[in-house]
């Protein structure tokens, strides 16, 4: 514990390219890039699956298989295979981010399509009968109703990304995980604990940010039913 306090008390750890602000910055930057890419892929796909019911079994199977696949092994395999394909500055970053995206997709996908599927069927029928176009039904009824499950899916994805980005320091990704890896290499337990504490704080802050975002964007009309709609197991938070 004393090593931990020492680490935070040292002004040298608060500046420069290995300082805490820079590392937090990188950690968040890579996480957000990965989340953004995952959203771009998973949300439209989830809308398609939820709307048509096609490919549901494939998606559920993929989500489960990815849960069993050890992330550390996956990271190392992808880096070893893909590193030769990238120019020097991206040699570790790009493959690591690829894995982050891959791991984030199932959670967002599942949240989106189950959200759309569990949107009140009679409300959808009523909207159609009243003359909403299929696009209007989607944007004005289904998506707002799917929002609680979607946000919960994105939250799970974000935590998975932040967690995996920490591990990815092992394959040289910049970020808070570096303190844990470098500390371990130098038997500097204070640095390790400091890195772990920072990662935990970042994860908790992001969790709170998502809770807040949910409060602001989910209609109060849907909030009561949040607890009754069981989040499917495959959308369970990842670690």
């Amino acid at each position: 514990m004393s090593g931990l306090i020492e680490f935070f008390a040292d002004p040298g750890n608060w500046s420069g390219s290995t300082g805490i602000p820079v590392r937090i910055g990188y950690h968040l930057l890579y996480s957000l890039i990965a989340l953004g890419l995952a959203l771009v892929i998973a949300v439209p796909l989830g809308i398609y699956v939820g709307h048509t019911g096609r490919g549901e079994a494939v998606v559920a199977g993929m989500a489960n298989a990815l849960r069993a696949l050890p992330t550390l092994g996956l990271l190392i395999v992808v880096v070893m295979l893909a590193a030769p394909l990238f120019s020097s500055s991206l040699v570790f970053t790009a493959p690591a981010i690829l894995v982050l995206v891959l791991l984030a997709i199932p959670s967002i996908l599942t949240g989106t399509y189950t959200g759309i599927q569990t949107a009140d069927r009679s409300a959808v029928d009523a909207a159609t009968g009243l003359g909403y176009t299929p696009m209007q039904v989607l944007t004005r009824v289904q998506l707002p109703c799917a929002l609680p499950l979607m946000i919960s899916g994105v939250r799970g994805a974000m935590l998975q990304i932040v967690s995996t980005a920490t591990v990815a320091a092992y394959v040289s990704l910049n970020g808070l995980g570096r303190y844990i890896i470098d500390g371990r290499a130098n038997n500097d337990f204070g640095q390790m604990a400091a890195g772990a504490a920072l990662v935990a704080v970042v994860a908790l802050v992001l969790e709170l940010a998502f809770l807040l975002a949910g409060r602001l964007t989910i209609s109060p009309g849907l909030r009561r039913s949040e607890r009754r709609v069981k989040v499917p197991a495959s959308a369970a938070p990842a670690t």
Partner: peptide, 24 residues
């Protein structure tokens, strides 16, 4: 219990010794 789930596993492994006094 949901909050515990939030903490990334690698960070959890490293932080526990400081909390419960085991070897790292």
């Amino acid at each position: 219990s949901g909050l515990f789930y939030t903490i990334p596993s690698l960070a959890f492994f490293v932080l526990l010794p400081g909390v419960i006094g085991t070897r790292i």
